[in-house]
């Protein structure tokens, strides 16, 4: 069976005055239909760069990308947007501050105007129709993020690339977004790459996990297997730190 999304031996270096920085080294992954792949790692591990490479915002130096078995390496977001959509960390800035939500969501439809479909997706993410007439500044961060998810679904793209989508939210908004993502995952209609530094969060939402460090994939596999039997030292440390955090949360 062909994977809905696949990356093979992706490499990316950034040149700067201080010298070259390697952001990705031989990173390979795949994503099957209806599956959520979590990408975890600390800041600077290359997970966001990987998302940018996969989305077409950055072209890899070498390696290839495939969608449904067809190579799309080098394609820009205007083209990749036909089958994938990015949900950014800062949800508010992903909506034009001057536009009402409905117009921003409709814009993602590539010329298709279907209000009923917009309403359907809005309900799916647990928002009211009344919010569609508001501007981003009149919504909370969590509401904006759920609007982003609704917009991504309305676009008709089959793959979501979620870049730290709960990091900029408060705890209650995080919970709302996580609930939406879990529901969508359980429906089995969502295929997504879910980037986060929080392994606990990833374990709640994803089927499989890929652990990144210094631009390399150090481990990947089924979520249960990785959590219960991590092979790499770095993965063990991430899990340990998440467990400590859970204890702290329980105490306070």
């Amino acid at each position: 069976m062909e994977h809905i999304l696949e990356g093979k031996e992706l490499n990316k270096r950034f040149a700067s005055e201080k010298g070259d920085t390697t952001a990705l080294t031989d990173v390979s992954f795949y994503l099957d239909k209806g599956e959520v792949l979590g990408i975890v790692g600390e800041s600077g591990s290359g997970k966001s760069t990987l998302l940018k490479v996969v989305s077409g915002m950055i072209t890899p130096d070498s390696g290839d990308l495939f969608h449904d078995g067809k190579k799309y390496t080098g394609q820009k977001p205007r083209k990749t947007g036909e089958f994938l959509q990015v949900i950014f960390q800062d949800a508010k800035s992903s909506f034009d501050p001057r536009m009402p939500m409905e117009r921003s969501i409709a814009e993602a439809g590539r010329g298709r105007a279907d209000r009923a479909l917009i309403l359907e997706h809005i309900k799916k993410v647990g928002l009211d129709e009344e919010l569609l007439s508001r501007k981003p500044s009149q919504l909370s961060g969590g509401q904006c993020q759920r609007m982003s998810i609704a917009r991504a679904f309305y676009s008709g793209a089959g793959i979501l690339l979620c870049d730290e989508i709960t990091s900029a939210l408060d705890v209650s908004s995080q919970a709302q977004v996580v609930k939406v993502m879990k529901n969508l995952k359980n429906d089995g209609k969502m295929s997504a790459l879910f980037v986060s530094h929080d392994i606990a969060l990833v374990s709640m939402i994803c089927n499989r996990i890929m652990v990144m460090k210094d631009g390399r994939c150090v481990e990947q596999g089924e979520i249960g297997k990785i959590i219960s039997d991590p092979q790499h030292e770095y993965t063990r440390k991430l899990i340990e730190s998440a467990r400590k955090q859970e204890i702290v949360n329980e105490v306070y």
Partner: peptide, 26 residues
């Protein structure tokens, strides 16, 4: 570099559309 301009790229919008609808009014 704002997210909504990047989102407009993913929505397949033309450069003229992005300049006139998103950049100029802002």
């Amino acid at each position: 570099n704002e997210g909504y301009i990047q989102t407009a790229f993913f929505a397949g919008k033309s450069d003229l559309y992005i300049i006139m609808i998103h950049i100029f009014p802002n």
